[in-house]
C-alpha cells in the first residue's frame, strides 16, 4: 500500500476546509494497520520521522528546507514555502500578466529560524521563476554574533526588474511584499491582513493548506537539485553572470 505522507511545519497549516481527507499523526508508527490510501497523512517535518520513511516507498512530500543530499534521490516530492501562500498566488497572477515584468520587487521575511540559507534558496528559486533569470546578486549579512540577524539580498533580474529580499531572524513570522510595476503597485503585509484581531496580540501566523502543498509540489529530479545548488552557491558568493 502506497500512502501519501506530507511533512510540514504543523503550525503553518490551516486544516479547515481541506479538499483532501487529512489525518494528523505524531509519528510513522502511529499509522499502524489502520492507514489507507484515501487519506493524506500529515506529520511534523522532523529529522527522525523523515528518516523513518526513507525506504518506505510511500508518496512523500517534504518542504524544500528539508531537502538534503541523503534524501534527494528517493523520488520524493518537494514544495516551497512561499509558493503555497494564497497571497503569493494572487501576486503571481498580477505580476504574471506582463510578458516580461518590469519593476521593483521588495520582499521581507521575519522568521523564527533561518534554516541555514535553505529558506532563502527556496525563495530565490520561486522568485526567479516569476521575475526571470538572475543576472547579478549581492548578499550582505549583519555580524552573526548580534541578535537579531539580518540579511539583505540585492538582485538584478535584468531587463528592468530589480529586487531586494531581506530576512530578519526574530521571535515571529511575518512576510512583507511590495511590487512597484508600471502603473501597478502591489502591497502586502501579513501583519496587516489578519482577519481576526484578538485583543492586544500582535503576532500572527500566516498559513497555507495541505491542498496547496500537494498542488505546488514537484518531484525531486537532477534538474531541480542542480538549480537549487546554483542558487545556494550564489547566496554563498558563487559566480554568476
Amino acid at each position: 500500500m502506497i500512502l501519501k505522507i506530507v511533512f510540514a511545519s504543523i503550525e503553518k497549516l490551516d486544516f479547515r476546509n481541506a479538499f483532501e481527507n487529512l489525518t494528523l499523526v505524531e509519528s510513522i508508527e502511529q499509522l499502524g494497520n489502520s492507514a489507507n490510501e484515501d487519506t493524506t497523512y500529515v506529520l511534523a517535518a522532523v529529522e527522525d520521522q523523515l528518516k523513518a520513511v526513507e525506504d518506505s516507498g510511500h508518496e512523500i512530500y517534504i518542504p524544500s528546507t528539508g531537502l538534503t543530499a541523503d534524501n534527494q534521490s528517493l523520488g520524493w516530492h518537494v514544495y516551497f514555502d512561499l509558493e503555497n501562500y494564497p497571497f503569493y498566488q494572487k501576486v503571481k497572477e498580477v505580476i504574471g500578466k506582463e510578458d516580461k515584468p518590469k519593476g521593483v520587487f521588495r520582499f521581507r521575511r521575519i522568521v523564527n529560524q533561518y534554516a541555514n540559507n535553505l529558506l532563502l534558496t527556496g525563495d530565490l528559486y520561486v522568485l526567479s521563476s516569476l521575475l526571470g533569470e538572475l543576472q547579478g546578486i549581492q548578499v550582505k549579512q549583519t555580524n552573526q554574533i548580534m541578535i537579531p540577524e539580518h540579511t539583505i539580498v540585492l538582485m538584478d533580474f535584468g531587463g528592468g526588474t530589480m529586487a531586494h529580499i531581506e530576512y530578519t531572524v526574530a521571535e515571529q513570522e511575518r512576510i512583507e511584499l511590495e511590487w512597484s510595476g508600471i502603473k501597478t503597485i502591489i502591497e502586502f503585509d501579513s501583519d496587516q491582513m489578519r482577519p481576526i484581531q484578538q485583543g492586544s496580540r500582535t503576532s500572527s501566523q500566516i498559513s497555507y493548506s495541505v491542498d496547496a502543498i500537494l498542488a505546488s509540489a514537484q518531484k525531486v529530479d537532477q534538474e531541480l537539485v542542480t538549480r537549487l545548488k546554483y542558487f545556494s552557491n550564489l547566496i554563498n558568493g558563487g559566480a554568476h553572470s
Binding site: 519593476g103 521593483v104 521588495r106 549583519t142 539583505i152 530589480m162 529586487a163 531586494h164
Partner: peptide, 27 residues
C-alpha cells in the same frame, strides 16, 4: 526613475534603500 541600494556603514551596520518615481497620479 528607479533604484535599489544596499549600504554598509563604518561600524558594520547594513541598510537597504528603495528610491523611485514609481507612484502614479491615481495612487
Amino acid at each position: 526613475d528607479a533604484g535599489l541600494l544596499t549600504l554598509e556603514f563604518e561600524n558594520g551596520v547594513i541598510a537597504s534603500h528603495d528610491a523611485s518615481w514609481s507612484r502614479f497620479t491615481e495612487y
